[in-house]
Amino acid sequence: MIDNGIDIRLVNDLSEMDRLGAALDAYADAADLPARVAFNVSLAVDEFVSNAINHGYADGRRGEIAVKVAREDGRLTLVICDDGDAFDPFTAPPPDLDASIEDRRIGGLGVHLVRRFADGSAYAREGGRNVVTLHFDLQGADTPH
């Protein structure tokens, strides 16, 4: 099978998330990704793309977010690139995982989950864009999708 990966461009609107999710699901099926990897990629995309849409364009301007997935050397590389305000998600403070129900907050939890589930992560600001790169190992990730 030829694995062409994913290369999809979205405008900064949450209504785009359904189209993105459908593209990821179709790719996971076609590429026969392990269920665990498919879930983790989907999670990373939902967290970072929704963050960019909700917080990256404070002045309400129209923006573009690109999502690319490619398989090489036994791992999957996910790149999320947006032209929103400069923001390195990996500098966000970690969430307090021990707080009680009353005191518990969600802020920072998405990034925490992605960091735990990805096998590598990097951030760069390049040409006015935020570029988040994540790696997911395919070897050792069991059960097919």
Binding site: D46, E47, S50, I106, L109, L113
Partner: peptide
């Protein structure tokens, strides 16, 4: 599937 947006609703 669940992401932190879903966890927020559960919380």
């Amino acid at each position: 599937f669940i992401s932190s947006a879903g966890l927020r609703v559960v919380l």
